[in-house]
């Protein structure tokens, strides 16, 4: 029970406080919070077009990062789970975990270097008469896909490991080619694992603002709006109102994930 209590107080309590704050307003001049109930922040959130644009952009990038990570993770996880020798398997797990030992900032700045006008990408592209794509949505998507890839590989690997190898043989005995086996046998069984991984990649992208600041150029995601309002403009109530958007999106996402039945099978 005590652990649940912790969760209730520390986690849900903080969320409740956030929601309450979003119903207050702020004195633009002094930055003091004025504790009068109002829906003004939410009205602004819906009224001003830019916030809708940013919300859709954030959801779009989160979805794109999730798809990219799923596509990249599947062959790696499949190799780790079904092809590699036990020794290679252990080494690969360590290799996948290794980037998580390095600081998030170091990795994001590494990508800033990659995309810079005198960085490796520009250097490789130069002989073809091309430039680095520079900082922006593309760089953000690549960086976030890189950052969250281990969070997709590990659940998919765990999921594939639980698929009995005998099923591969059975499928082959019944005349299915390896492509057919992957599509009809392996993927459906690994689907819950993809959903589990996608919850990580999707939610982590929804909330990110640091990588966007480093490689995003002029791009803003929801996290930046929260950061700019809280960290810069000091408008905590509006920041809280914006912060409820990813919460609502994630609740919707989790509800959809539950409907697929994926969460029960984990």
């Amino acid at each position: 029970m005590p652990p649940m209590l912790w969760l209730g107080v520390a986690y849900l309590g903080a969320l409740a406080a956030l929601l309450i704050t979003s119903l207050w307003t702020q004195n633009d001049f002094t930055g003091e919070i004025e504790r009068a109930w109002t829906l003004e922040n939410f009205q602004d959130l819906f009224r001003v077009d830019v916030y809708r644009t940013i919300t859709f952009r954030t959801i779009g990038i989160a979805a794109l990062v999730t798809v990219i990570d799923a596509v990249l993770a599947f062959p790696i996880a499949l190799y780790m789970a079904k092809v590699a020798s036990p020794r290679a398997q252990r080494l690969l797990v360590i290799a996948v975990l290794m980037p998580l030992w390095a600081s998030y900032l170091v990795k994001a700045y590494a990508w800033r270097g990659m995309f810079s006008a005198d960085g490796p990408i520009a250097w490789v592209a130069a002989p073809f008469g091309l430039h680095s794509p520079g900082y922006g949505l593309f760089a953000t998507t690549v960086t976030l896909s890189y950052l969250w890839l281990p969070y997709m590989i590990l659940p998919v690997y765990a999921g594939l490991e639980r698929v009995p190898s005998s099923l591969f043989e059975a499928s082959a005995d019944l005349g299915a080619g390896s492509w057919h086996t992957l599509r009809r046998v392996v993927l459906p069984m690994a689907f819950p694992a993809f959903v589990a991984g996608s919850i990580f990649t999707f939610s982590l992208t929804m909330g990110d603002y640091i990588a966007v600041k480093i490689v995003g150029g002029t791009t803003q995601l929801l996290g930046n709006v929260v950061y700019d309002n809280q960290g810069a403009a000091n408008n905590l109530p509006f920041a809280a109102a914006v912060a409820t958007v990813p919460i609502v999106v994630m609740l919707g996402y989790l509800a959809a994930a539950r409907r697929t039945g994926a969460l029960e099978q984990l």
């Binding site: 309590g13 903080a14 406080a17 956030l18 309450i20 704050t21 004195n27 002094t30 003091e32 919070i33 004025e34 504790r35 640091i210 950061y227 809280q230 960290g231 905590l236 920041a239 809280a240």
Partner: peptide, 26 residues
């Protein structure tokens, strides 16, 4: 700073009326 901001956010909201109680005279 980011961590501090997060902490401040939690405190400012959870701890209630420490600031802004006297907005009227300000």
């Amino acid at each position: 700073a980011a961590v501090a901001c997060a902490g401040v956010l939690a405190l400012a909201t959870a701890c209630g009326t420490s600031s802004g109680g006297s907005d009227g005279d300000k």
